[in-house]
Computed example of a mutant assay.
Amino acid sequence: MGTALRTFEAAGGWPEVRELAAGLAELDEAVEFAVRWHGEQRRPAGEPYLEHLLEAVRVLVEGVGVTDVDVLRAAVLHDVVEDTGCTAAEVRERFGSRVAELVGWVTKDEPAGGRSKAEARAAYLDRLRHAPEDALVVKLADRLSNVQRLDTHPRPEKRRAYYRETLTTIVPLARAHPWFHAWYAAWAREFAYLDAPEG
C-alpha cells in the first residue's frame, strides 16, 4: 500500500468501472436499478450517490479481488432499501434471495418499539458482528467508501463522530480480512487527528 492511503474513485461513472474486470457487465442490471431508485440523491459532500456505490464495487474488485457477482450486486444495491422507497421484496424478485439477504444484512432498520435513532443504529452495528462473511465484506467496502475522504464531509462534528464509530465498530470487523485490516489501519493513522481532544 505504501505510505499514501489508497483511495477508490468512481467519478467516471459506470462505463469506466465496468472496464475494470471481466464479468462486471453482469452488474449492468443492478446499476440500472440503483440509478432508477437513487435518482438525483447526493452524498454529503455533493457527489452523485452512484459514485459511492461504484466506489464500493471498486474496493471489492480491485482491493479484495471479489469476483462473486451476487456480492458485487449487493454492493451496488446496499443502500437501495435503506435510502429509497424500494423494498427488500423488490430486490429479491429482481435479483434473487441471496442478493436480497446480503442487502438485508447491511440495511439499518427504522427505529421501532420506542427505540431512538441512536439505539437503532447501535443495534444495527452490533448485529453486524454476526453477519455472514459475504455481507461483512460488502459492509467493509461500504464504510471504506464513506471514510476514505472523511475530511471532505461538510460537518466537522460528523467527521469526528464517524471516525470514532468506525474505530470502535467497523475496524474490529476487519481483523479477519487482511486487506481490509491493513487498509483501515492506515486510514486510522491518517485521520487520527480527528480523535485528538478538542480545544
Rank of each mutant, 00 (worst) to 15 (best):
M1Y: 08
M1K: 12
G12D: 02
G13H: 10
W14K: 03
E19P: 03
A25H: 10
E26W: 06
L27C: 02
E29Y: 07
E32C: 10
W37E: 08
H38D: 07
E40L: 11
E47Q: 13
L53F: 05
E55S: 09
A56G: 15
A56Q: 04
R58N: 00
L60F: 07
L60E: 09
G63Y: 00
V64I: 15
V71L: 05
L72V: 01
R73W: 06
L77S: 01
H78F: 05
D79T: 14
V80Y: 09
V80Q: 03
D83A: 14
T87M: 15
V91L: 10
R92Y: 11
E93C: 11
F95E: 00
R98M: 05
V99C: 02
V99D: 01
A100H: 05
E101S: 12
W105K: 06
T107H: 07
K108C: 11
E110I: 12
A112Q: 12
S116P: 00
A118W: 01
A118H: 08
E119G: 04
R121K: 15
R121C: 14
A122F: 09
A123I: 07
A123L: 15
L125P: 01
L128H: 01
A135Y: 04
A135L: 05
A135K: 04
L140G: 02
R143G: 00
R143M: 08
S145W: 10
N146F: 14
N146I: 15
V147D: 00
Q148A: 03
R149W: 13
D151E: 14
T152Y: 02
T152R: 13
T152F: 07
P154R: 05
P154A: 04
P156E: 01
E157G: 02
T168Q: 14
P172Q: 10
R175E: 15
A176W: 04
A176R: 13
A176V: 12
H177G: 01
H181F: 12
A185E: 13
A186R: 15
E190T: 12
F191L: 10
A192T: 10
D195L: 00
D195A: 14
A196I: 09
P197A: 10
E198Q: 11
